[in-house]
Design a protein around this nucleic acid. Structure first.
Lengths: 249, 249
DNA sequence: AGGACAAAGAATGAATGCAAAATAGCCAAC
DNA sequence: GTTGGCTATTTTGCATTCATTCTTTGTCCT
């Protein structure tokens, strides 16, 4: 047995009240809602080791609250799939198997594919221009081999497409699944292969092209395939890590 | 104001422990998990009027438990989008606006579209045969004008496609959204127009055809359009109700 | 008579308390 | 030296209790 995380395993570093509303309706008011937001970010950011046992009591001390609202928040996070609640044995950060990741990527692919299709129905020229702008910005990052900037801009592009779909329900679901994956992305930033990178740029150009033509069904296909390729790269990277550079912390 | 549901408004009829596991991981063990399953079914089946205020205390009596596990279950249901929690003002069954319904239908369409695409990658001949079987069965219901049987079989077909996608994550998400919509379907069974019915049958034949050919991207398009048409019919029906017959218990 | 204010009652939100289960710690036996 | 069982401590699950907020009702003033 590797270790059942020592008592000092979980650093006592409160996530410090987040600034903006993430996805939930309007939970900010009540204490359990506040806790929910903070704990979600805390988990998503990878502050708790995978599968680590986290005593409620410790979390209570960390957050300065009693167990009741904390337990309520935990139940919600479990429903969201971020953690799992073993009966009588507390909460653990959910371990995503490779299969889980594949499934998640596919669902994300489906949602983005849908977003693209819907976006074509309602997107304005201005929005397309904005995405083009982001695209060029991203291209710049690509040329400068600025991985971080690239990923950031890439994410903004995909979020813009989702936003253009004009579907709040979709947006929330998308954010939820994205959070589950980000949990992993924090520990291992993947998809850093050069070859894949160039490929992704080309795919992004097709995306823009289809978007300009409002070719919904076509864009749907491209987006799905794009995410599928991302998935493959990610899984490969996780299977045999350390491909480019650690660059953690 | 119609009424703030009188004290006797919510019938004291416990949903009586459900038989099978619906979607949650394995919450059946703990009390709050049991409560969660029962309450979810209870709400989905439409036992509580839309927007009705449901005092926790009444639910506690009905379920024979204290407020703590009930409140935990309510938080989860709120996260799932079935109910909403107004701060300091209790839980209400979520009212779905027309826009909400449109959004939900589109997301369902996206998920089924994805399911079809994935199914083409892995579905076996046996599974296709089984779906064909269901299709013929449904055609029988169609010929006999058996609305209930038709819908039941129709649902099984769509579930079979989702199952064939071999993606548990997708399946769970699908079940979640289906539950939100079913909540509405119980109060108003829609899509009963003759014309639409025949159209749906034709679409189902295209679905089968694409599935046989494992034409993923094509099936994806057909399924999306199929659900889109369903959506239109549903919204129309809700806008001008009483089209066919009330048929409410 | 109608509306506004105030106080009582009720309901929600959070904390504490208590019982049951699980973990670990320890001693004895093999 | 290791393994098995027993006890003590910790931790979870749920109930109960306390504080705050909302709702309602009654009264007073215009």
């Amino acid at each position: 047995m590797k270790s059942t995380i020592p008592d000092t395993g979980v650093p006592i570093t409160p996530p410090a009240g987040n600034g903006g509303d993430r996805q939930e309706n309007r939970h900010e008011a009540s204490l359990h809602g506040e806790i929910l937001l903070r704990l979600r970010d805390y988990v998503v950011e990878g502050n708790i080791p995978e599968g680590a046992r986290v005593p409620e009591r410790r979390l209570c001390e960390m957050l300065g609250i009693s167990r009741t609202p904390l337990r309520e928040a935990l139940k919600v996070l479990a429903a969201e799939g971020l953690i799992e609640l073993l009966p009588n044995r507390g909460a653990r950060v959910r371990q995503l198997s490779q299969r889980d990741l594949e499934e998640l990527f596919d669902v994300m692919a489906g949602l983005e594919s849908l977003a693209g299709r819907l976006a074509c129905e309602a997107i304005t020229d201005a929005e397309i221009t904005a995405i083009e702008q982001l695209h060029y910005e991203m291209y710049g990052h690509y040329l400068h081999r600025d991985m971080h900037g690239y990923f950031q801009t890439n994410q903004r592009i995909h979020e813009s497409i989702v936003a253009a779909a004009r579907n709040e329900t979709l947006k929330i679901a998308y954010a939820n699944f994205a959070g589950r994956i980000r949990r992993v992305r924090y520990s291992a930033n993947f998809a850093r292969k050069r070859q894949r990178w160039a490929e992704a740029m080309r795919e992004h150009e097709s995306i823009l092209d289809a978007l300009r033509r409002r070719a919904g069904s076509e864009l749907s296909d491209i987006l799905f395939q794009h995410l599928r390729n991302k998935r493959t790269a990610a899984i490969e990277h996780l299977t045999e890590p350390q491909e480019d550079a650690p660059a953690s912390a």
